[in-house]
Design a protein around this nucleic acid. Structure first.
Lengths: 153, 153
DNA sequence: TCCAAATACATAACATGTTATGTATTCTAT
DNA sequence: ATAGAATACATAACATGTTATGTATTTGGA
């Protein structure tokens, strides 16, 4: 249940510096991450799929949509693009003819290994000057907000 | 320079609980805000335009794109949809024939007055149980991250 | 003054998501 | 055993953004 998202945007000032700040931070994360990923030929929407299929794992499209926290049609079109670009393979599930099994190609596996270093680099930049205590406090407060908002879904 | 965004998404676990949390919070804010706005017939991408043109203000499309922190072509298509839906009016700038002046229609003005209450409601839900001190700490930490990331753009 | 650069907008192609809907397959309860 | 519900996927129409590019107008420097 954790998911960055490529994301477009809203912009508001008052009365919500809080949502303005979190969304602004997400915007900045996303822009910088996309720039970082561009060097490796990956797109930001592809990350959850690459992560879910690491180490040769196989999932069907529904499981991938659930993992990425997007709707099924969005995952279908994402996977079509990734298959076109040679990052994944799709084959019919022999045990359920409704289902399609997805795996990474060797190229997808190789490229997926660039993701973690890129994310680490970004996190280091974001938390520059933070003490370990400050970092913990921030995570705790964000988790409380996360929990409050999730309960409203 | 503060802006929520409608936003699609990424999803990552390790090594970045921080970016995972902020982006997850943005995702939740966005989903809940869209749900709230749906009652009023507004879309989330329209918010910065409605805010920028409050109180009868007039801006050209470039100024609106800058305010919303999106590229000019994105603003052009957004405004075309908003004009189609009767929220804004566009007229040629008499002093510069390259430029188009944008204002809210009466319907746009009326609907824009629903935004602040919706945002306030969301912020209250997000910060449920927070003391004023906790709220201040959170804002301070987010502003520091914001500043660090912005300096990398 | 006038030409080159800058500016404002539009259009096209695309990525990434959303609903709404349709089709094929599987499951389940009588 | 089978009919109806549930599941997995696909397709269409759309919103919201991005680059790349083109056009028309304005500006500014030799």
């Amino acid at each position: 249940m954790y998911s960055i998202h490529t994301f477009p945007g809203i912009r508001m000032t008052a009365p919500s510096p809080l949502s303005a700040l979190t969304t602004r931070n997400t915007r900045l994360f996303t822009l910088l991450l996309e720039r970082e990923l561009k060097k490796t030929g990956l797109r930001i929407g592809q990350l959850p799929v690459l992560q879910a299929l690491q180490d040769g794992k196989t999932l069907n499209q529904k499981a991938l949509a659930d993992f990425a926290d997007i709707e099924q049609p969005g995952m279908t079109t994402l996977l079509a693009r990734m298959e076109r670009d040679g990052l994944i393979q799709r084959e019919p599930d022999p045990t359920d003819r409704r289902s399609t099994l997805v795996t990474l190609t060797p190229d997808g596996q190789r490229k997926s290994r660039n993701i973690v270093p890129a994310m680490e680099h970004l996190t280091d930049m974001a938390l520059k000057g933070f003490t370990p205590l400050e970092r913990d406090i921030l995570v705790t407060l964000l988790e409380r907000i996360n929990s409050s908002l999730k309960s409203q879904l």
